[in-house]
Design a protein around this nucleic acid. Structure first.
Lengths: 154, 154
DNA sequence: GCCGTTTACTTGACGCTTCAACTGATCCGG
DNA sequence: CCGGATCAGTTGAAGCGTCAAGTAAACGGC
């Protein structure tokens, strides 16, 4: 006996399903067009640029970038080939690898940031009022908390 | 002069960014594990099962499945190989192709549906109250309306 | 202090999506 | 009608993500 979605629930769900497909595509398109970066690549560079010493362990970087370690490893290899990141083993514990943003990498993400933030603003933030923005934060937090990989399993 | 996100805006955005990455992954994982289907494949089969005569034009099916025509073409080819869909050119206008759900395809999607709906419920719907559900619908609709490919350009 | 286990990360192969180029079918101006 | 333009869909190649297997360093029990 399946508990199917009623029309109200279905409508909300279909709206969300459309969003999770199309919003990432739109943001990727802007970054790709204007900076030649995928959203994930941008995220990696941006997180590094915010980190102390422009440097983070691969596993921490993977976590805050919402990606798997394997995915990050492939992406960092490509970013390294483009000269935006370097990798070096952690001196204290050889199991860890630190990803470090280079000077050129910093320039790259600095140049890409305004366009990306502009897209986030025009596609999301500026289309919602203050109440909606707060509701969105609460809703996303609530759903994310129940997802596998959350630090809050309840 | 970039208009950066303030802490409130940033917090909402990061929550949403996490959601659009992790929610599809979680739904895909359930479908893949329990039915051997991707979310997009499920969507295609589900939309066909709701259509009159279990049949839709490729381009209409692509639109309501939130995918490109090219992606759909590849996926329908695979679904056809698995015996769940057949394709035939439209008799009236040879440019159109109709995708039609087979009997086995109907059984497949019928078997997969309860598990998928259960996942949507437990991960999304049942975690929100009625107000949040309605707010979510409004927010997603508002954002989606501004995305490329929307029927409502404003 | 040695060996098995665990941790952190890398790698290669496979599958899926995208993009651009292509095929066919229909429309339309003259 | 005939030829170019447009429309619907397909295809192949290239790139990215995932998974499973592998490597290398550090821990931990004895």
């Amino acid at each position: 006996m399946t508990n199917w979605l009623n029309p109200t629930e279905l409508s909300s769900w279909l709206s969300l399903a459309e969003l999770v497909v199309k919003l990432p595509a739109a943001l990727d398109a802007q970054l790709q067009r204007d900076s030649g970066l995928s959203h994930f690549e941008y995220m990696v560079l941006a997180r590094l640029s915010e980190a102390p010493a422009q440097s983070l362990r691969m596993s921490s970087l993977a976590a805050i970038s919402n990606g798997s370690l394997s995915r990050l490893s492939h992406v960092v290899k490509r970013l390294e080939q483009r000269g935006w990141v370097v990798r070096e083993p952690c001196p204290e514990d050889g199991r860890y690898t630190n990803a470090i943003l280079t000077g050129t990498g910093r320039e790259k993400v600095t140049a890409a940031a305004p366009g990306h933030v502009g897209a986030v603003r025009s596609l999301v933030i500026d289309r919602l009022d203050a109440d909606q923005l707060e509701a969105l934060r609460a809703i996303c937090g609530r759903i994310a908390a129940g997802l596998p990989g959350s630090t809050c399993p309840e």
